[in-house]
Design a protein around this nucleic acid. Sequence first.
DNA 1: GTTTAGCACTCCCTGTGATGGAGTGCTAAT
DNA 2: ATTAGCACTCCATCACAGGGAGTGCTAAAC
Lengths: 351, 351
Amino acid sequence: MTEMTPRCQAILGLVIRTYVEKGTPVGSKMVVDSYGLKVSPATIRNEMAVLEEMGYLAHPHTSAGRVPTEKGYRYFVQHLLGDTVLPPAQQLMIRHQFHQAPLELDQWVKLAVAVLAHTTHKAALATAPRAREGKFKHLELIVLRDTLVLMVLVLEGGAVKQEMLTLDAPVDQAELSRISNEYNDRFAGMSALAISEISGPLQGLNRRIRGIMVQSLLAMDRQDNESMYRDGLVHVLDEPEFFEGPQVRQMFSTLHGSSLVDVVTAAAEPLEIGGVQVLIGGEGRWRDLSELSLVLSRYGAPGGASGLLGVLGPTRMTYDRIIGTVRYVSGLMSALVTDWYDGESNYIEGA
Amino acid sequence: MTEMTPRCQAILGLVIRTYVEKGTPVGSKMVVDSYGLKVSPATIRNEMAVLEEMGYLAHPHTSAGRVPTEKGYRYFVQHLLGDTVLPPAQQLMIRHQFHQAPLELDQWVKLAVAVLAHTTHKAALATAPRAREGKFKHLELIVLRDTLVLMVLVLEGGAVKQEMLTLDAPVDQAELSRISNEYNDRFAGMSALAISEISGPLQGLNRRIRGIMVQSLLAMDRQDNESMYRDGLVHVLDEPEFFEGPQVRQMFSTLHGSSLVDVVTAAAEPLEIGGVQVLIGGEGRWRDLSELSLVLSRYGAPGGASGLLGVLGPTRMTYDRIIGTVRYVSGLMSALVTDWYDGESNYIEGA
DNA sequence: GTTTAGCACTCCCTGTGATGGAGTGCTAAT
DNA sequence: ATTAGCACTCCATCACAGGGAGTGCTAAAC
């Protein structure tokens, strides 16, 4: 059962590689010819029969070649994966696209998704880095018209949150400025907990503002459907297995739907920064992803905010290349984010 | 040629209605049976032959029923469309979804797209209302770390624009507050042109800020790919004509791609607020939309900001119902936006 | 003169074998 | 343990026939 001769492994690897490349079930002759092996097809057939019995390969029908099962892919990813480091040329191309990177964090994330989707030719997704708990930096209150106020909340790290407030009674800008100045003086650099502790019972406008502040600080790391960027979903349509029938529809509702966020966050839960997680065919836990694989990584500043990025494609994908790409982009993004936060903390210490 | 007997019209209408409903080419017998006409199939056949010669109907092959051409649809929309006003029940359902509407304009727009997509079961799109030229309301400069400044620009009407600035030399918050206060006192309520006229030659930070301000004010009505909301693209996959082959792929790149914005803005160019424009099969101008129709409307406050919203679906769609829905939602949105701006201007006058 | 019944014709759609090929699984020989 | 040989299985492809839907024409009916 756990018996797995080196040759068996090798053959499993070859079968998967050829299947990933060609997309059709691969037969014994195909393996021998493609790699110029010194054994006969019959030998391969025997080994393949063993692999099938162990559950790593499957048979569409009696006289077809073999196809990897999810278990097969998983074994491949865990034990047979060679060097997943991207060749320097690829690295350069990716780095180059990050070179004229914009200054806002969200822009970086969008860029990362686009780069991932483009270089892997698959669907890509990412979430912006979020700290576990945000710290208050700056509050601004701007009156738009008598009872309507725009509240702009800036957190440390540069995240900005806008909120509209309607009031019961009109206020003027001077009053609002007075309030926001007080907040800025009193609460700068504090966490939600600290703010809650300081402030006694509140009422009216102050109460609403405080509520939103605390809520925003606490909800920093909650990823919702809106905050996940996606790109390149079209690429998945290029794969022959998604070419026809209602699969296309199902695929797209999966990718576009809101459940994807849950899957991603659940799958990424055990991930350290820089770590890569490979989810093959939903792993039995998510039916939506039955034909899909997800290569996910967490990026961010060590001990600080972190986000997720990854690639989503058919189970039949070139895992080595894609894992390499995801890991590399994750590394780049971590560097960017770390730089950002270092700069930030330096400033604070130096101030 | 321009000859079009009433009965011809009626038959064209019936053919289109049945085709839209069934999705298969419709034959003479089908028409007679479906509507209990008092004429024989042969009569219908003759008329249909005439309609075909005039270019309103087409023949997939010799012994198939008739299918409407783009020209046929256009004639239908222009002359044969009955009452496109939505039944009260539908109106109520839509209105109800707008009832607990959020306070931000963009949220309204998103809601409108969702409602359109949902009720028509087609793809929907919308752009946020933009004024021809914005007016400055409020500027806020917040230092994030030594040389990095967050600039928040609020325009009249509540549009908010964020921008990051990197400086050559560090500044402190006090200095920034001084600058922003000066701007707020001096330029409140002014247009880009007025601001440009007042200010003499500038340098350094002031020059950058002024540049962004003017640019933002001028670019208010420019719709880019990012600013167009889309929803319900999946619905189009339900239509049988998009079920198979590379059409799906092409469709999706069309709908997701950036060229759609150009098409929409070009098509909407002649539209008055409240007007509805129907684009059938790309009208020969846009090859991407060959199988698609676009029902578009402009909404907004009269003389003020306006945006676009519409529905995109296969040429084979129920034009009356969809035009009705688009017009109704457009009306609702116009009311919302007008309210918004009225409130705004009231405040300004009363201030 | 318009309408209609009748009919031949055209073309698609579907199901049915028939054929070939790719690949397996088994057995016996190496 | 490996391999050659071979029967077998099942899929894919093609051709072909029959049924069906619908047309276009013609001639008769109103």
